[in-house]
Write a protein that binds this DNA or RNA. Structure first.
Length: 264
DNA sequence: TGCCAGGCCGAAA
DNA sequence: TTTCGGCATGGC
């Protein structure tokens, strides 16, 4: 394992179990392991120092290591609610997930619970992803859009994903045909990107914002209104001036609100 | 058994 | 423009 040293605002549980990704699991020794970018990532923290199984530069990108989250938190925690949310979610980093994986995952997530989302995605990968090995153990990559586009809803019936299956196949086909172009999305403003992606059948405001935040790195996605309005029923925070990193702030709020059963 | 889950679609009001 | 039933399925 490679020692990355101390990384400020870096908590494995809050990163991998806050609901932004679905393919990482906690091992008995407290480390986390999963697959992203077609590779196995295994990491743990010991005495505040982060250890990682590979020095591939993709992990610096994936883990968003160049961003100063402590500065963001400092700016974020300004009132009772944001302080509680920020303290609760300390250590979250917004993962830079692969666009198609994020898109597919959040299509599957709709009107679903997290254990079942993980189960469906696990079945999807085990059956249609590519096999890779790490220390003699077998893992599976997330299937490509091309692979999913080649399948029928009957092929995917083993997922037991219900009506989401056709949404998934349709989105995969649109990615393959170029009707959805991630590079094009990359250049767009947040507003344009929302309009663009929501033209896809089965992608509404929620899935769109999750995809844009976790899959496209559009940190202004997932804006204030959804959870803050609900949270305001319990707290008096005002997030209106925090546009720049709204997405990150929103993940703190979302995580906190969900864990505390707020906004029902 | 019944409620609900990190929703969305399409029709009706 | 907002509201609402239906949708597949299984975790709890």
């Amino acid at each position: 394992m490679i020692n990355l040293g101390k990384i400020n605002n870096f908590d494995l549980t809050h990163i991998f179990d806050c609901g932004q990704c679905f393919r990482f699991k906690k091992l008995d020794d407290g480390s986390y392991i999963g697959v992203a970018y077609g590779k196995v990532l295994h990491l743990y923290i010991n005495n505040g120092e982060v250890f990682i199984n590979s020095d591939d530069k993709i992990w610096k990108h994936f883990l968003d290591l160049d961003r100063d989250y402590s500065a963001i938190l400092k700016e974020f925690m300004v009132d009772d609610f944001t302080i509680k949310a920020g303290e609760f979610g300390t250590g979250i980093r917004i993962l830079r997930q692969e666009p198609f994986e994020a898109l597919a995952s959040f299509i599957i997530s709709q009107c679903n619970n997290i254990p079942r989302i993980k189960s469906i995605i696990n079945t999807l990968c085990n059956n249609f992803g590519n096999e890779i090995q790490d220390n003699g153990e077998i893992f599976y990559t997330f299937p490509t859009a091309e692979k999913i586009a080649s399948l029928t809803s009957e092929d995917l019936s083993i997922l037991r994903a219900g009506y989401r299956t056709d949404y998934l196949i349709n989105a995969a086909k649109m990615v393959c045909s170029g009707e959805i172009n991630f590079k094009l999305l990359d250049e767009m403003t947040l507003t344009d990107a929302r309009v663009y992606i929501m033209k896809v059948h089965g992608i509404g405001a929620k899935v769109a914002d999750c995809f844009l935040l976790f899959g496209m790195g559009k940190l202004d996605a997932f804006p204030i209104d959804t959870w803050m309005k609900k949270a305001k029923a319990f707290y008096d925070g005002d997030m209106s001036s925090y546009g720049k990193y709204a997405g990150i702030y929103q993940q703190y709020i979302f995580y906190y609100a969900k864990e505390h059963n707020l906004g029902k």
